[in-house]
Design a protein around this nucleic acid. Structure first.
Lengths: 206, 206
DNA sequence: ATCATTATATGCGATTTGGTATGAAAAGAG
DNA sequence: CTCTTTTCATACCAAATCGCATATAATGAT
């Protein structure tokens, strides 16, 4: 590790990473368009010039929040599906975790940040659309890799379309995010996950 | 039919139902918050006072557009699943139709109006959240009724959880709407539908 | 101590927003 | 033709929005 020499001027009085989390929380509740710079300022405790200095304009800030969520989701999925065990256990862990995360939020359950906010902006804004498409294809890829592995081991007799199953798995995850924002309770979200796991793995405990 | 006598004053120069469709198209592209009254005015050809006279304020207008989409979706699902035939055929028709609808839009594919716009507002606004929850449970109910019917006829051997399967079916529909807004092509959307139909009905053509 | 550098704080200003006030236009009633 | 009723069009308003200009504070370099 290299000791970073402290930079020249006045030191920051905040942690940019924490501030980005706080900004994301604000966007998460009300969406990109309806969240004003005053809201972001209040959420982060930074005044506007500091926000601009740290992240650029409102859209740049939002894109960084999106990007962070994409990366976190990707890492979370990879971790949840890495262990060598039955596919059923891995998928169940993914959906249970998602259900819990989607129910969080002080102003009510907020679902997934990407699904809950970027989907609305995606038609009009190519940058946001690109992040969304990227995130979805990464989720697909994570599911597909894990399902393919189960097939190779002979764990899914009679099934062959890993890519198709993966897109269904992603779709149900998105559907859970939608439903969380509609107010669905934790049991309903978990039941959705359990149902799709049953369909993919078969009702018996393969 | 009763002949309506023409009302007293100056006649309308527009069709409110057409205007609501045009307003919905504007909301559909950019979402509720980012669509201004000027945008709505341009989309409908009405000036603001006429908009207010016809629909009330911006939120009332949006709620009416949501409600219309909810009703259309419900009617469309009922119609698509009514015929007495194999479950596979009915579900396939639903997803093919959805894929085509979700790809429409002059400014790029717009997905489902409810999923694409109401999901963002749902956390902060109880009225919008209620319409969304309502729409989702209606879709669930339509799928569940049709799947239960197939089970009674012995068309889904080894399956019993109609409600769970229905929520998965709804989830994938939502996932398709999300993916359409991310720019997915028609083939991908249709493949998603085909995959979930295979999972629900079994790979063989039950 | 003084200067250069970076960060923070206050506050401004052009533009956009949702909503409305006011008056002209188009129809029927008498 | 005149009066009432309803709709349409122009213009306006107060508030909010995004972004920035300017001034002040806190640090390292010299």
């Amino acid at each position: 590790m290299v000791q970073k020499p402290r930079p020249r001027g006045r030191p920051r009085s905040y942690d940019p990473d924490v501030a980005l989390d706080q900004a994301r929380a604000a966007f998460w509740n009300t969406g990109y368009a309806a969240t004003s710079l005053d809201d972001l300022s209040a959420a982060t405790g930074l005044n506007r010039p500091s926000l601009y200095g740290a992240f650029g304009d409102k859209k740049a800030m939002y894109l960084q929040a999106l990007e962070k969520s994409r990366a976190e989701t990707n890492a979370g999925l990879a971790a949840a599906m890495a262990p060598e065990e039955h596919l059923r256990a891995a998928l169940t862990r993914v959906y249970e975790a998602a259900a819990t995360i989607y129910r969080r939020g002080e102003a009510g359950p907020r679902g997934c940040f990407l699904i809950g906010t970027a989907v609305t902006e995606a038609v009009d804004d190519p940058d946001i659309r690109a992040v969304l498409a990227n995130a979805l294809s990464e989720i697909d890829a994570a599911f597909e890799a894990r399902i393919s592995r189960a097939m190779e081991v002979g764990n899914l007799p009679g099934s062959s379309d890993a890519a198709g199953m993966a897109r269904v798995a992603t779709g149900v995850l998105n559907g859970m995010a939608v439903r969380a924002r509609s107010g669905a309770d934790l049991a309903t979200l978990k039941a959705m996950g359990a149902s799709v796991v049953d369909l993919i793995c078969g009702r018996a405990g393969r």
